[in-house]
Design a protein around this nucleic acid. Structure first.
Lengths: 90, 90
DNA sequence: TCGGTCCAATACCGATTCGGTCTCGAGCTC
DNA sequence: GAGCTCGAGACCGAATCGGTATTGGACCGA
């Protein structure tokens, strides 16, 4: 599992489409598709239901989404706090 | 920044030595050294003081360590919670 | 029912990243 | 000064990642 995979997952969950998420992320669609699949493999099962209209979150996907957002927020805080200790905010 | 870098950082911080951490992580010493350096570059400055005896945490390193541990714990919780929704614990 | 349209998934390939081995340079100890 | 310990750099092969091109399935309108 990587932070990129988590970011991709959150984008897909929010957009509801791999293609739309890939545009937001400025990455090609197959790259996002692959990482989502790898994430699902690592977690032992699907997080989305594939529909002709896009990707719908499954219950396990909803569970993971909450944690994923928390992780990304924690990373942002970690960077900001560490940098702040070195470069006092103005 | 990657989760591996965060794991490497925590190991080095706990062990106080790149070499010791690399043995615990089962990877070669230069690999850990490189990732720590890349992490420091990304965060805009050093996290450790290099001493002849090993690596000593700088103040910014101490700040980051707290966040890093929290991130890794959050990842573990995310995996456990997502898996738990699929395979009820016995 | 047949084209057109979306959608994600796959095949294939080149580029980037990552880790391993070997080696060096600095600093301490006796 | 010899030997030891430590992290860092050079170099190389392996694995990962992303991009392009393409496929296959499902829906829609004519």
């Amino acid at each position: 599992m990587s932070l990129s995979q988590i970011r991709y997952f959150v984008a897909v969950a929010e957009e509801g489409h791999v293609g739309r998420a890939s545009r937001r992320l400025r990455v090609a669609q197959p790259a996002v598709s692959r990482q989502i699949r790898a994430l699902e493999d690592e977690l032992g099962g699907p997080l989305f239901e594939r529909t002709p209209r896009g990707m719908a979150l499954l219950p396990s996907g909803r569970v993971f989404l909450g944690h994923a957002s928390a992780i990304l927020a924690a990373v942002d805080r970690a960077v900001a706090a560490t940098r702040a200790g070195r470069e006092p905010p103005a």
